[in-house]
Amino acid sequence: MSEIIRVEHLKYVYNPGMPDATTALDDVSFSVEEGDFVGIIGSTGSGKSTLISHFNGINRPTSGRVLVDGKDLWAPGADLRSFRFLVGLVMQYPEYQLFEETCARDIAYGPRNMGLDEAEIQRRVKEAAAFVGLSDELLEKSPFELSGGQKRRVAIAGVMAMQPRVLVLDEPAAGLDPEGRDTILGQIKAYHEKTGITVLLVSHSMEDIAKYANRVLVLHKAGIAMYDTVENVFARAQELLELGLSVPQVTQIFLKLRKMGLDIPTDVYTIPYAVKTIKKALAAKQAKGVE
């Protein structure tokens, strides 16, 4: 596997030179392998949204470099727009960017900007709509007639239709009911598995990250606190709690059990794995009893 995104000593300051200047990111360095599903977490104001708008050149680093597919976004002569098609960014509450008369035309906006021919555009619209479960009937409706969750799926399809190599989503499930959450995140996961593209998912919910990602980037106070596989990050559950982040409920139970003196691992973050660990612990206990 090769590196698709590389960030080197990235620093970003809002309103430089003004009395309200704030450093949103300070000396951030990391890289993402192609095909990974990276969850990005951090408390409010830790720089998550600022960080992800660097990957397609919406934000320009105050200092440091951002490389996508080995190329510096801000190198002299670099074509920023080509990076926007390479890294698809779904912003927070993306349903507010819808503008066309029909959903199909709105989804086609990105591919059309890429200069594709009409047949290819239509093919991509159909494909992206299928990924997020939009029926043909819905595609012909005005986006303003749809429910919140449907609108959001149209907006996500609009970015998927550009067939980027990296899909970045900023809180795609924010403000949706639990069912809408699971639908959207499940569709993104299925999309990731089917196409094999790299996905970066910003989320507040540890449960979501644990369920869908294979690597986790923890941001804290404008810097990286942890960047590791999901197992390794949740094994440091205590530290996560100290950073003011929550850990999945099942991890919390295991932390408490461990505090009560049970000899069990703390890197448990999904229910099936928890069941397995408990069974193993029980078997070990029985074996001890037999002796």
Binding site: N56, L89, V90, M91, Q97, Y109, N113, G158
Partner: peptide
């Protein structure tokens, strides 16, 4: 603007009429 730029909108290049057209996806939302 950032959201539409992320979808490849060209806001500061192109002919005058193209630029006006490019504003539609900004103004409606």
């Amino acid at each position: 603007m950032n959201a539409q730029k992320a979808r490849g909108a060209m806001l500061d290049t192109g002919k005058f009429t193209q630029r006006i057209k490019a504003l539609v996806p900004i103004l409606i939302p």
